[in-house]
């Protein structure tokens, strides 16, 4: 913690964005599941969809404001998650070495990764596309179900359901791995920093190419 060899991985803006994402997406996932299975009485279902709507609006504002404030970071994020190289195929062939490490306590060689490993890249792609789909279809389903063409609304509904299921399942994996990588968890929820040595092991290409010493001014 007091090691001076720390890298600022998540600046404050990213951490605030992530906090807002947590307090909007987790309720959205929970209320979305309730809306899908409809287990409760009329007034409870009404309360559920109200929470869903408010959390959805919060998520929309969160995404929009981060897109504007952290435009450069968004572009960096997109350029990273959408870049595919041969290393990604090698990474998926051994699944990043995680099953071997978790189940067999064996270390296997893993191709060098950038800031995000291939699994995170796939997650990033899904979160971005799925998130955009969820926001657009969700707003349309809330405000225009009565006057957009019926088939279009039904299509938007199906897209919303599919994207929601995909992201909710990804969320479980994300929470598990996020807590498993406890340094990253602390970085995201507390101070934003990770140790230099660990980063070098986890993301050698990133540290090598993109990390610079703090400029003195």
């Amino acid at each position: 913690m007091h090691s001076k060899n720390m890298i600022l991985k998540h600046p404050l803006s990213v951490r605030i964005f992530h906090y807002l994402l947590v307090i909007s997406f987790v309720p959205l996932a929970v209320t979305g599941l309730i809306l899908y299975f409809k287990p409760f009485s009329e007034s409870t279902m009404n309360l559920t969809i109200r929470v869903h709507v408010i959390a959805g609006i919060l998520l929309t504002f969160d995404a929009l404001s981060f897109f504007m404030i952290g435009y450069k970071r968004v572009v960096l994020f997109l350029s990273r998650v959408f870049s595919i190289s041969g290393n990604d195929f090698k990474w998926f062939a051994v699944l990043g070495g995680y099953p071997q490490k978790l189940l067999l306590h064996k270390k296997v060689p893993v191709p060098p990764m950038g800031k995000y490993n291939s699994g995170q890249k796939l997650f990033g792609v899904c979160v971005f596309i799925g998130g955009v789909i969820l926001i657009f279809t969700g707003l349309a389903l809330w405000a225009f179900p009565h006057n957009l063409p019926r088939g279009t609304v039904a299509l938007l509904g199906h897209l919303h359901t599919i994207a929601a299921w995909a992201l909710t399942l990804f969320l479980c994996v994300h929470i598990f791995l996020g807590i498993y990588m406890f340094d990253d968890f602390k970085a995201m929820f507390l101070h934003g920093k990770i140790p230099y040595e660990e980063a070098k092991e986890m993301a050698p290409l990133w540290v090598e190419k993109e990390i610079i010493p703090l400029p003195k001014n």
């Binding site: 720390m6 890298i7 960096l76 230099y196």
Partner: peptide, 16 residues
């Protein structure tokens, strides 16, 4: 400042 390193913020070319 208790960290020494940051991410290079300008790592994308104009074309990208």
């Amino acid at each position: 400042q208790d960290y020494k390193y940051i991410e290079n913020p300008l790592h994308i070319t104009r074309r990208e």
